[in-house]
Structures are given as structure tokens and as C-alpha cells.
Amino acid sequence: MSAHRIIAFAGLAAALVLPLALQAADQSFYVGFASRVLIWAIAASSLNLVLGYGGMISFGHAAFVGTGAYVSGILIAEGVTSAWIGWPVAMLASAVLALAIGAASLRTRGVYFIMITLAFAQMMYYLVNSMKAYGGDEGMNLPARAVLGFGFDPGNEVTFYYVVLAALFAVLYATHRLVHARFGRVIVAIRENESRAEAIGFPVYRYKLVCFVLAGAAGGLAGALLASHGKYVNPSVLHWTQSGTLMIMVILGGVGRLWGGALGAGVLLVLEHLIAEHPIPWLLTLAPDYPQHANLGVGLVMLAIVLYAPQGVAGLFSRKTGKEHG
């Protein structure tokens, strides 16, 4: 058994016992927080499929998460409460949106692709903002979480945690199988050298589009879980800074690594929580309102990583540019 596998199984074991440990330590509040981290881990992992494996710098991934959240939220609000209907429909809706956005934006490359994915995501943001019937810019409260059936109570935080954990592992396992199959090899080949992949005879556009759509669907699942988790949907899920945050998660955790998205989501959200809720006393005396300016720290750290440790940021990408010039 490789070291990689041992770490993976240790992580799985830790995730499995976490709620029980939190309850034993009388910190049940954190079970809900852990679920939120896992949901963002799904969202970041889905972006990692496009960004890390596919090499497509999509700056609009929040649109797929948000669409999933809104579709499942609207279904619950309209009385379709079953998760077994709502969540697949949410994934399908995000996949269809990804198909439309991908079909238009994958015709272009480079900075065009970045700008166009960003612009289409912003379009979705304005669209949900103007949906007055579903809360408009104020968002919409949901009466309850999606119903699971089979005796599971989704309102129970521990049950919901395990549902989210199962979804995360399903997404990670599917990603693992996908990137080790022929499809994944082709996607990575396209990332490394698109012209060469095209010259070999792969339908590059179609492969990229399928990758984009699959990631969109997984993003939609994260959104559906998010809507149920907070019993609330809000346009800010689709805001473009959310796309940027997802990207930061992927970079922090490791671009094109299976656990990258999950790891990055965990690190970023836990750090954010610590800065906002558990201020350090001596720092407070120096700068009394530093918890309100947490983004300054995030920005400086990101900038320093990109400027001074590019290998740590995107080893995979710099290898690619090296080849192009060499």
C-alpha cells in the first residue's frame, strides 16, 4: 500500500469519526460547520477537474454551484421535497448550463476564455438577482431540507454530515476513475499540449466540453447540498468573487491533485473561521479591527505565493509553459 493510499484512508477514517468526536467533546455546533466545509470541498473538487486536469481556467464556476442551489431550492419551495428528485435535477440543470456556456466559451482560448466564463457567470448572477418570485436580491428561505427517505432525518446535523461526506467521496471516486481512464489521459494530454493532442487526432473541443459539463454537474450537486444545508439560497453564491474563492481553494490545495480541492476548501474555510471568530489577543491590541480585514491577509498570502513560490502554486502549469518555450 502506497503512502498516498495510507494518507487517503487516514483522511477517510478521520472524516468518519469527526462528528462523533465533536459530539463527545460537546462541540456539536461544529458538525454543521464541517458539513459546510465538505460541501465547498465538493465544489472546489469539481473546479479542480476543469482547472487542474483539463487546464481550462474557468472563472465562472460559481454559476454552476449557484444554479444547483437555486434549482434545488426552487423545487423544495414548490413542494418537490425529495432529494432523490431535487438533487439529480439540480445537477442536470447545472450540466445543461455548463453545456451552453462551454459550447460558446471553449471556441476561444487564453484570456478570452477566462473573460467569457467570468462574464457568463455574472449573467447568471444578475438573472437570479432579478427573479423576484424567488426572493430577488434578498435570497429565499426554504421551509426544510430536501427529504431523503429510508428513515434518514436530513434535519439531524450528524445524518446530514454523513450524506455530504458520501457525496464528496462519490465525487472524488468518480474523478479518480475518470482521470485514470482513457478520458482523463486525453484531457491531461490536451492540457499539456493542445496542438499535439489535436494532431494525434483527438476531438479536442468535444473532450474539453465533456470535462466542462461533468464539472458543472458536480458543482450543481455542491449547490444543491448547500441550499439544503443552510435552508437558504442567495445570489451571493453566484457572485464572481465566489468563483475566485473556489479558484484560491484549488490552488491552495493542489492543482490537478485528487485531494486538492477538498484540502484547499478545508484550509481556507477553517482559517477564515479562526480569523473571524477566534481573534488572537495580542494581534487585537496591535490592530483592533483586523478580523474585519481578513481579506487583506488572504490577498497578501495569495500574492506572495504566486510571485515567490510559483512551483507551489501551479507546478503543473509552469511545466507546461516550460515545454512550450523549450
Partner: peptide
Amino acid sequence: TLYARDHLSQVLATFALILILNEVVRI
């Protein structure tokens, strides 16, 4: 320093700059 870098680095670094400049203006 970013000109020679890939687009992902440029996106991240300038996104970081937005966060930094927003907070600086707020302060």
C-alpha cells in the same frame, strides 16, 4: 513579474490585488 507567467498566475495575483486594494481603501 507576471508577464512571463501563465494566465492562471495572472488571474490569481490580480484577484489577490483586488482583495488587498479593497481592504486598503476600506482602512
